[in-house]
């Protein structure tokens, strides 16, 4: 095989026409007095192969359906991952205690769903908070949860923040942030202090209402409302990202 020229990289870039004008001048000067460089370039230029065309047939092949479904399955997959994580941690920290907590934890979503079913568009449409009122509200709600609360901006999902309130779930403060889509019924992001382990977002339906729930740093979150599933998942990911950030 032909030896590699010490300037092989630059000579390749020369052949591929990827050099700046200054570098091009340097290589031309080199080629004027270095026969090895000339031979190397001639070798590279000897055959131009249709690389892209030779591999294009892959792009025409039908992609197995399960790859396109990966996106839809992903939330389920993430949930499976978190279940495994729950079990591993549960075994080390005390499985039964964790199970009892999880039962309480699941109930709160049913309570949130029951409460949310009472909401109609008019429940929140007339509420208009100024930025200073939102700031005061944020402090009040954060104090109830004993944390610094962020009110996620979900305008990317066309959800406008309308109001926040403190509710009660078995003696624990439950924060409800209400958002209104451009059309249709309100969406609520609810936050509860909990001792469940961190979990990735998972989707579900409670009382006929789709929701996405997750837990992070001692707080459980659920976003719930009758909007399309994709929009709800996007809102959940957006909220989780802002809260984490």
């Amino acid at each position: 095989m032909q030896n590699m020229h010490p300037q092989a990289e630059k000579l390749l870039a020369y052949v591929d026409q990827q050099l700046s004008s200054n570098e091009m001048a340097e290589i031309k000067a080199l080629l004027a007095h270095d026969p090895d460089a000339v031979a190397f370039v001639e070798k590279l230029q000897q055959i131009e192969l249709p690389f892209a065309e030779s591999f294009d047939f892959f792009l025409d092949q039908e992609v197995p359906e399960h790859f396109n479904k990966t996106k839809k399955q992903n939330l389920r997959w993430q949930w499976a991952t978190s279940i495994v994580a729950s079990l591993v941690v549960g075994l080390t920290l005390g499985y039964y205690a964790s199970k009892i907590n999880n039962e309480d934890h699941d109930n709160w979503i049913v309570r949130v769903a029951d409460y949310h079913l009472l909401y109609v568009r008019d429940t929140v449409i007339e509420t208009h908070l100024s930025s200073s009122e939102i700031s005061d509200l944020k402090n009040k709600l954060g104090k109830a949860l004993n944390t610094s609360l962020k009110i996620p901006d979900l305008s990317a999902q066309k959800l406008k923040f309308k109001r926040g309130q403190i509710l009660d779930a078995n003696g624990k403060p439950l924060i409800q942030l209400a958002y209104l889509p451009q059309d249709g019924l309100p969406v609520a992001l609810c936050i509860l202090q909990s001792n469940v382990i961190d979990s990735l977002p998972k989707s579900g339906v409670s009382r006929g209402l789709p929701y996405v729930e997750w837990s992070k740093n001692g707080l459980s979150y659920v976003i719930i409302g009758k909007i399309n599933q994709q929009q709800l998942e996007a809102a959940a990911l957006n909220a989780a990202s802002q809260i984490a950030g």
Partner: peptide, 26 residues
């Protein structure tokens, strides 16, 4: 589509054949 997630999902599906080709090369 109106948000990042939808944009991401749509773009991802379009790229799958190219990813599949790269996977085959590896």
């Amino acid at each position: 589509m109106t948000d990042n997630t939808d944009t991401f999902d749509q773009a991802l599906i379009k790229i799958i054949p190219r990813l599949r080709r790269y996977a085959r090369v590896l």
